[in-house]
């Protein structure tokens, strides 16, 4: 309102932390690009060449989508995903409870359990499958075991994070009315996280369905074995047929799962 000229505050200088981080990121990116031998010209050159995969796209084998053997492989993939998710989900709830402060008052076991889960989480699905194939032989069993551990890692992590942020009111109420630890968990904690937990289980099922399609590449059953077979024969038309079919299955399952999850939460 007065005559005094408008004085803007000086622009804050970027913190040394931000500068260091930006420089670090750029250096990291350059080093990484050199490691993988990234080059645009090479990329364009490769894309320009004719290759069997793109040609296979022109001769997609639609019959392969519904052939007897492929159908059985798809069913096996679905079965492994259902069983692996269920088994993983069953052990995940107690483990998640034991690895958080609300469910487990003892510090040392809690830290041990969290570290164990971090190790399990660091091993990718296909590596689990490879391990179990080496251990128990090829077939659906190693695939199932791999999905079990993979599911456990995913669901425990997400559920434990949810448990860290729950409302403490009901817990206090349960304790005040003299509930035992188990009763407290049953009545004050589990009902709070159950919708989120169910939603994570469904999300994990989607992940598992996608994962179980590739487990066969290392011999762990399911559609991946057929993919590997056609890849080794260089039969790209049939391989594209399977990929398309798989794509349809995933889209349908995800559509259903999203519907259900929306109702749950």
């Amino acid at each position: 309102m007065s005559e005094s000229p408008l004085r803007l505050p000086p622009k804050p200088k970027p913190s040394p932390w931000a500068i260091a981080l930006s420089i670090g990121m750029v250096v990291f990116t350059v080093v990484c690009a050199r490691t993988v031998g990234f080059s645009f010209s090479g990329l364009i050159e490769d894309l320009g060449r004719s290759n069997p995969v793109a040609q296979g796209l022109l001769e997609i084998s639609w019959g392969e989508m519904f052939s007897e053997r492929s159908r059985r492989a798809f069913l096996e993939t679905l079965q492994m995903a259902v069983l692996g998710t269920t088994a993983g989900a069953a052990v995940s709830l107690p483990i998640a409870l034991w690895s958080t402060e609300v469910g487990n008052p003892y510090r040392i076991p809690r830290i041990l359990l969290r570290s164990f889960n971090n190790v399990v989480r660091a091993i990718p699905d296909l590596l689990w499958a490879g391990l179990f194939v080496l251990g128990v032989g090829i077939g659906a069993l190693p695939g199932l075991l791999a999905l079990f551990f993979f599911s456990m890692a995913v669901i425990v992590k997400l559920t434990a994070d949810t448990l860290d942020g729950i409302d403490m009111g009901p817990i206090e109420a349960a304790k005040a009315s003299g509930a035992s630890h188990t009763q407290m968990l049953r009545t004050a904690v589990v009902p709070q996280i159950l919708p989120a937990y169910s939603s994570y289980v469904l999300y994990d099922f989607e992940l598992n369905l996608r994962a179980s399609a590739v487990l066969g590449l290392v011999g762990a059953g399911g559609i991946g074995q057929r993919l590997d077979f056609f890849r080794n024969r260089g039969d790209w038309g049939k391989l594209w047929g399977l990929v398309l079919m798989f794509f349809l299955v995933v889209v349908v399952v995800e559509w259903l799962s999203v519907r259900i999850r929306r109702r749950l939460v």
Binding site: V53, L126, R210, V214, L227, F246, E254
Partner: peptide, 11 residues
């Protein structure tokens, strides 16, 4: 919808 491993297989 398509896992990375399958993409890699095609690439």
């Amino acid at each position: 919808a398509v896992p990375e491993v399958i993409l890699a297989l095609l690439f």
